[in-house]
Amino acid sequence: MAGRAEQLAKARAPRGRRGRSGCPVGRAERLCSRLLSRYDWLLFVHVLAAFAIAAGLTLLTGAMILTLRRTGDEALALSLTRFSPFLFDGAGVLVLVLGIWLAIDIDGYELWDPWILAALVLWVVIAFSGARALAAFRRARKTAGPGTDLATAVRDGRAPLWNAVAIAAVLATLILMIFKPGA
């Protein structure tokens, strides 16, 4: 177990002059080690941002189900889609920036590692498909009227397809982040 703990400590320690706690050597070391290392905070916010993206996608999927099943909750579905852009855009930028920061900061990871490159490509797929799904929903709201209901307009705009692509890309990214193939 001691060997494993040592390995973990090494893996967690970012580059640069570090104390035993993995914090920068100097006056800030005591405070830093008390508040956990930079790596811990970066990883926490990175993971939290990933959770926010998944939450945004869950809201969008919920809105999609409510609309396509014609439950009479179209107004609620549309209100749910209003939250998704905040979760997608803000968390999307955070997850990317912090992910790159972590890849640069941690010994053993490089930005050109195949699994990290694949994750970056998947980030683009998630951003593109998520934005298309939301845009299709917004267009459907404008085009839906007396002749066309919202469900038909949403389906015509391929919102379910883009939503499914975003879900698949998020799942693939999660698999990459956990299994880290080739790392």
């Binding site: 390995q7 973990l8 090494k10 893996a11 941690i106 010994d107 053993g108 990871y109 880290k180 790392a183």
Partner: peptide
């Protein structure tokens, strides 16, 4: 050393 090498 990467985290992946640490986690079986």
């Amino acid at each position: 050393m990467s985290l992946a090498a640490v986690r079986p």
